[in-house]
Design a binder for these strands. Sequence first.
DNA 1: CTATTAGACGATAAGTATTATCGTCCGTCA
DNA 2: TGACGGACGATAATACTTATCGTCTAATAG
Lengths: 148, 148
Amino acid sequence: MHDIPSLDARSFRELCADHGLAATHQRQMLYDVMRTMPGHPSPEEIYARLKRRIPAISLATVYKNIHLFVERGVLKEVSMHHGSLRVEMNGHPHHHLVCSQCKAITDIEEEDFGMLPTLQRLPGGFEVDRYAIDVIGICAACQKAKSS
Amino acid sequence: MHDIPSLDARSFRELCADHGLAATHQRQMLYDVMRTMPGHPSPEEIYARLKRRIPAISLATVYKNIHLFVERGVLKEVSMHHGSLRVEMNGHPHHHLVCSQCKAITDIEEEDFGMLPTLQRLPGGFEVDRYAIDVIGICAACQKAKSS
DNA sequence: CTATTAGACGATAAGTATTATCGTCCGTCA
DNA sequence: TGACGGACGATAATACTTATCGTCTAATAG
Ligand SMILES: [Mn+2]
Ligand SMILES: [Mn+2]
Ligand SMILES: [Zn+2]
Ligand SMILES: [Zn+2]
């Protein structure tokens, strides 16, 4: 278990430049906080942490910039099965195990997953970017709870 | 283009009995309205149609019974990429093409899709029910719009 | 037949998540 | 040193959903 190193200002500026964004202090702190949160944290959770670094930050700014990051392709949205906005901080290509009981979401790396469906042709010329696969089922914890 | 035949009261009673639900008039009309709506209609859209048949119906009743149908397995929830509750009325096993530009969602039948991923083993004994696959990309309309 | 009771319903208040608005501030560049 | 445009924070507003509660209804027990 090693800490995720902080992104330095230089690389963050580059990241922003690449995506046509102004590199503000709030954005860098937001991005950095998100990078260090595992799983798929909610805007509120992100906001709570970010506030420790920038007490004056506003929740609206969090929402605005998460959306901005998603629009510009810095982050991917992964809003399924939650009641709120989520973004993907796991950089590896991966999919999700979704427990239909407790709604828990677990990452599963693409390489641990088996083969991808090989799609030959698509209706009306749909241009594929990627596959997002949810494995719906019951997690181990909920199985145990049910059988008891 | 042929109309979807109305579900008769007898079969609806059976359906409800199978799932441990009281077969009320409101529920039958709700189910019947939903059956005849293509795609993934929102609660509001369903409510609007249902109101024509039962002017006194309440939106709360729509929500309550959609949730009930989902809980009891009469319907499947498919809340991805929308800002609101959606259920799947397409009975065939299928997946979705999702345009990342305009957010349009199109069904794609499982058999038209290619093979399913063959999952060997699952982390910690997750019990698989089904796969929900979203093909993320750009729809034909948005491609045309972009290139123009 | 009543009386009882367990949902089911409709109206509506409340709650959550999200977005829009707006006044202000700050860094960049003429 | 202004002027400008984008970003920020506060907060009002919105959209969606759920909780509450009084009433109704259909089935059941007496
Ligand atoms: Mn993930
Ligand atoms: Mn569908
Ligand atoms: Zn679970
Ligand atoms: Zn599109």
